[in-house]
Protein backbone atom coordinates (compact mmCIF):
# COMPACT_ATOMS: atom_id res chain seq x y z
CA UNK A 1 0.00 0.00 0.00
CA UNK A 2 1.42 3.35 -1.04
CA UNK A 3 0.48 6.17 1.35
CA UNK A 4 1.15 9.83 0.53
CA UNK A 5 1.19 12.27 3.45
CA UNK A 6 0.26 15.54 1.78
CA UNK A 7 2.23 18.68 2.67
CA UNK A 8 3.05 17.87 6.30
CA UNK A 9 4.73 21.30 6.55
CA UNK A 10 1.35 22.97 5.92
CA UNK A 11 -1.12 20.37 7.18
CA UNK A 12 0.53 18.89 10.25
CA UNK A 13 -0.48 21.03 13.19
CA UNK A 14 -2.10 18.50 15.48
CA UNK A 15 -0.10 15.30 15.58
CA UNK A 16 -1.24 14.46 12.05
CA UNK A 17 1.75 12.18 11.54
CA UNK A 18 -0.12 9.83 13.94
CA UNK A 19 -2.50 8.72 11.17
CA UNK A 20 0.31 7.77 8.78
CA UNK A 21 2.13 5.99 11.61
CA UNK A 22 -0.92 3.96 12.69
CA UNK A 23 -1.74 2.94 9.10
CA UNK A 24 1.81 1.85 8.44
CA UNK A 25 2.28 -0.01 11.76
CA UNK A 26 -1.06 -1.80 11.61
CA UNK A 27 -0.31 -2.90 8.05
CA UNK A 28 3.32 -4.00 8.46
CA UNK A 29 2.49 -5.98 11.59
CA UNK A 30 0.16 -8.04 9.40
CA UNK A 31 2.74 -8.49 6.68
CA UNK A 32 1.29 -5.89 4.31
CA UNK A 33 4.03 -3.90 2.57
CA UNK A 34 3.67 -0.17 3.17
CA UNK A 35 5.46 2.78 1.67
CA UNK A 36 4.78 6.15 3.35
CA UNK A 37 5.83 9.13 1.25
CA UNK A 38 6.07 12.65 2.66
CA UNK A 39 4.93 14.98 -0.09
CA UNK A 40 6.49 18.42 0.26
CA UNK A 41 4.95 21.53 -1.32
CA UNK A 42 7.65 21.55 -4.00
CA UNK A 43 6.96 17.91 -4.98
CA UNK A 44 4.70 16.60 -7.72
CA UNK A 45 1.90 14.48 -6.29
CA UNK A 46 3.18 10.89 -6.44
CA UNK A 47 1.12 7.86 -7.39
CA UNK A 48 -0.47 6.44 -4.22
CA UNK A 49 -3.34 4.25 -3.04
CA UNK A 50 -4.19 6.55 -0.13
CA UNK A 51 -3.65 10.29 0.30
CA UNK A 52 -3.64 11.71 3.83
CA UNK A 53 -4.62 15.31 4.56
CA UNK A 54 -4.04 16.80 8.02
CA UNK A 55 -5.01 19.95 9.91
CA UNK A 56 -3.41 23.39 9.56
CA UNK A 57 -3.64 27.08 10.30
CA UNK A 58 -5.45 29.53 8.00
CA UNK A 59 -2.58 30.71 5.75
CA UNK A 60 -1.05 27.27 5.24
CA UNK A 61 -4.55 25.82 4.63
CA UNK A 62 -5.14 28.30 1.80
CA UNK A 63 -1.75 27.53 0.23
CA UNK A 64 -2.40 23.78 0.49
CA UNK A 65 -5.77 24.24 -1.24
CA UNK A 66 -4.16 26.26 -4.05
CA UNK A 67 -1.46 23.63 -4.60
CA UNK A 68 -3.95 20.75 -4.53
CA UNK A 69 -6.26 22.50 -7.00
CA UNK A 70 -3.34 22.59 -9.45
CA UNK A 71 -2.33 19.00 -8.66
CA UNK A 72 -3.48 15.67 -10.05
CA UNK A 73 -5.38 14.71 -6.85
CA UNK A 74 -8.85 15.08 -8.33
CA UNK A 75 -7.91 12.97 -11.36
CA UNK A 76 -6.29 10.32 -9.16
CA UNK A 77 -9.39 10.09 -6.93
CA UNK A 78 -11.56 9.75 -10.05
CA UNK A 79 -9.27 6.85 -11.04
CA UNK A 80 -9.89 5.09 -7.73
CA UNK A 81 -7.32 6.48 -5.24
CA UNK A 82 -8.51 6.91 -1.64
CA UNK A 83 -8.33 9.96 0.66
CA UNK A 84 -8.42 10.20 4.44
CA UNK A 85 -8.75 13.84 5.54
CA UNK A 86 -9.07 15.57 8.91
CA UNK A 87 -9.94 19.10 10.04
CA UNK A 88 -8.51 21.67 7.55
CA UNK A 89 -8.00 18.76 5.14
CA UNK A 90 -11.71 17.97 5.36
CA UNK A 91 -12.59 21.59 4.55
CA UNK A 92 -10.23 21.70 1.55
CA UNK A 93 -12.01 18.74 -0.10
CA UNK A 94 -15.31 20.67 -0.22
CA UNK A 95 -16.53 23.39 -2.56
CA UNK A 96 -15.55 26.29 -0.28
CA UNK A 97 -14.27 27.13 3.20
CA UNK A 98 -13.56 30.26 5.26
CA UNK A 99 -10.17 31.50 6.41
CA UNK A 100 -9.11 34.80 7.97
CA UNK A 101 -12.58 36.25 8.40
CA UNK A 102 -15.75 35.28 6.59
CA UNK A 103 -14.59 35.37 2.97
CA UNK A 104 -15.27 32.08 1.22
CA UNK A 105 -12.23 30.42 -0.35
CA UNK A 106 -12.60 27.94 -3.19
CA UNK A 107 -11.93 24.32 -2.27
CA UNK A 108 -11.16 21.27 -4.41
CA UNK A 109 -14.85 20.41 -4.96
CA UNK A 110 -14.11 16.71 -4.65
CA UNK A 111 -17.23 16.43 -2.49
CA UNK A 112 -20.29 18.68 -2.49
CA UNK A 113 -19.92 20.12 1.01
CA UNK A 114 -19.44 23.71 2.14
CA UNK A 115 -17.77 25.13 5.27
CA UNK A 116 -18.64 28.50 6.76
CA UNK A 117 -17.24 30.13 9.87
CA UNK A 118 -19.05 29.15 13.08
CA UNK A 119 -19.92 31.66 15.80
CA UNK A 120 -17.54 29.93 18.23
CA UNK A 121 -14.58 27.59 17.86
CA UNK A 122 -15.31 23.90 18.40
CA UNK A 123 -12.63 22.70 20.80
CA UNK A 124 -12.71 19.49 22.82
CA UNK A 125 -13.09 15.75 22.76
CA UNK A 126 -15.34 14.28 20.08
CA UNK A 127 -17.36 11.06 20.29
CA UNK A 128 -19.42 9.90 17.34
CA UNK A 129 -21.32 6.82 16.22
CA UNK A 130 -19.86 5.50 12.95
CA UNK A 131 -21.93 2.51 11.80
CA UNK A 132 -21.77 -0.03 14.60
CA UNK A 133 -18.68 1.52 16.19
CA UNK A 134 -17.93 4.55 18.27
CA UNK A 135 -15.18 6.92 17.17
CA UNK A 136 -13.18 9.03 19.67
CA UNK A 137 -10.93 11.99 18.98
CA UNK A 138 -10.16 15.64 19.62
CA UNK A 139 -11.43 18.52 17.50
CA UNK A 140 -10.22 22.13 17.30
CA UNK A 141 -11.67 24.19 14.46
CA UNK A 142 -13.86 27.20 13.66
CA UNK A 143 -15.91 25.69 10.84
CA UNK A 144 -19.51 24.66 10.34
CA UNK A 145 -19.74 22.16 7.49
CA UNK A 146 -22.94 21.58 5.55
CA UNK A 147 -23.36 18.46 3.42
CA UNK A 148 -25.39 18.66 0.22
CA UNK A 149 -28.31 16.21 -0.08
CA UNK A 150 -27.02 12.75 -0.88
CA UNK A 151 -23.66 13.22 0.87
CA UNK A 152 -23.36 10.85 3.82
CA UNK A 153 -21.83 11.98 7.11
CA UNK A 154 -19.10 9.78 8.56
CA UNK A 155 -20.74 9.70 11.98
CA UNK A 156 -23.46 10.99 14.27
CA UNK A 157 -22.10 13.22 17.05
CA UNK A 158 -22.66 11.90 20.59
CA UNK A 159 -20.32 14.36 22.33
CA UNK A 160 -18.67 17.46 20.84
CA UNK A 161 -19.48 19.43 17.66
CA UNK A 162 -18.17 17.83 14.45
CA UNK A 163 -19.71 19.49 11.36
CA UNK A 164 -22.57 21.20 13.13
CA UNK A 165 -23.30 19.54 16.48
CA UNK A 166 -25.25 16.70 14.83
CA UNK A 167 -22.98 15.02 12.31
CA UNK A 168 -19.25 14.62 11.86
CA UNK A 169 -17.35 14.54 8.59
CA UNK A 170 -18.44 12.73 5.47
CA UNK A 171 -17.79 9.48 3.65
CA UNK A 172 -17.94 8.49 -0.01
CA UNK A 173 -16.89 5.36 -1.90
CA UNK A 174 -13.21 6.41 -1.67
CA UNK A 175 -13.04 9.30 0.82
CA UNK A 176 -13.22 9.51 4.61
CA UNK A 177 -13.25 12.91 6.33
CA UNK A 178 -13.59 13.82 10.03
CA UNK A 179 -13.03 16.79 12.31
CA UNK A 180 -11.22 14.53 14.80
CA UNK A 181 -7.63 15.53 14.06
CA UNK A 182 -4.15 14.06 14.11
CA UNK A 183 -3.98 10.65 15.66
CA UNK A 184 -7.65 9.67 15.13
CA UNK A 185 -6.56 6.49 13.33
CA UNK A 186 -4.06 5.72 16.10
CA UNK A 187 -6.81 6.04 18.74
CA UNK A 188 -9.49 4.12 16.82
CA UNK A 189 -7.89 0.84 15.73
CA UNK A 190 -11.12 -0.45 14.13
CA UNK A 191 -11.35 2.62 11.87
CA UNK A 192 -7.68 2.35 10.90
CA UNK A 193 -8.23 -1.31 10.00
CA UNK A 194 -11.36 -0.45 8.03
CA UNK A 195 -9.33 2.02 5.95
CA UNK A 196 -6.51 -0.50 5.38
CA UNK A 197 -8.98 -3.26 4.43
CA UNK A 198 -10.80 -0.99 1.97
CA UNK A 199 -7.67 0.41 0.35
CA UNK A 200 -5.84 -2.95 0.04
CA UNK A 201 -8.89 -5.15 -0.56
CA UNK A 202 -7.55 -7.54 2.10
CA UNK A 203 -9.45 -9.30 4.85
CA UNK A 204 -7.42 -8.34 7.93
CA UNK A 205 -6.43 -10.73 10.70
CA UNK A 206 -7.18 -9.44 14.23
CA UNK A 207 -4.32 -7.46 15.79
CA UNK A 208 -3.86 -6.63 19.47
CA UNK A 209 -2.14 -3.30 20.15
CA UNK A 210 -1.83 -0.82 23.03
CA UNK A 211 -4.46 1.29 21.27
CA UNK A 212 -7.22 -1.22 22.24
CA UNK A 213 -6.96 -0.19 25.89
CA UNK A 214 -6.80 3.52 25.11
CA UNK A 215 -9.82 3.27 22.79
CA UNK A 216 -11.88 1.43 25.41
CA UNK A 217 -10.92 3.95 28.09
CA UNK A 218 -11.80 7.03 25.97
CA UNK A 219 -15.14 5.55 24.84
CA UNK A 220 -16.08 4.79 28.45
CA UNK A 221 -14.92 8.19 29.68
CA UNK A 222 -16.76 10.14 26.95
CA UNK A 223 -19.93 8.04 27.01
CA UNK A 224 -20.46 8.87 30.67
CA UNK A 225 -20.39 12.66 30.13
Amino acid sequence: MKIALIYPELLGTYGDYGNALALSQRSTRRGIDVDVMNVSITDELPDADLYLLGGGEDGPQRLAADLLKKSSLKQRVANGAHVFAVCAGLQILGTSFCVEGNDAYEGLSLVDVETTRGSVRSVGELLSQVGENKMVGFENHGGVTTLSPGIEPLGTVLHGRGNNGHFDGFVTETIWATYAHGPVLAMNPWLCDEVIAKVTGNNLTPLKTAADQLYAERVTSLSSR
Binding site: A211, Q213, L214
Partner: peptide, 9 residues
Protein backbone atom coordinates in the same frame (compact mmCIF):
# COMPACT_ATOMS: atom_id res chain seq x y z
CA UNK B 1 -2.60 4.96 27.81
CA UNK B 2 -2.22 7.76 25.25
CA UNK B 3 1.53 7.51 25.89
CA UNK B 4 1.66 3.69 25.71
CA UNK B 5 -0.26 3.77 22.40
CA UNK B 6 2.21 6.30 20.99
CA UNK B 7 5.20 4.22 22.19
CA UNK B 8 3.72 0.98 20.86
CA UNK B 9 3.38 2.51 17.37
Amino acid sequence: LDLSTRLDY
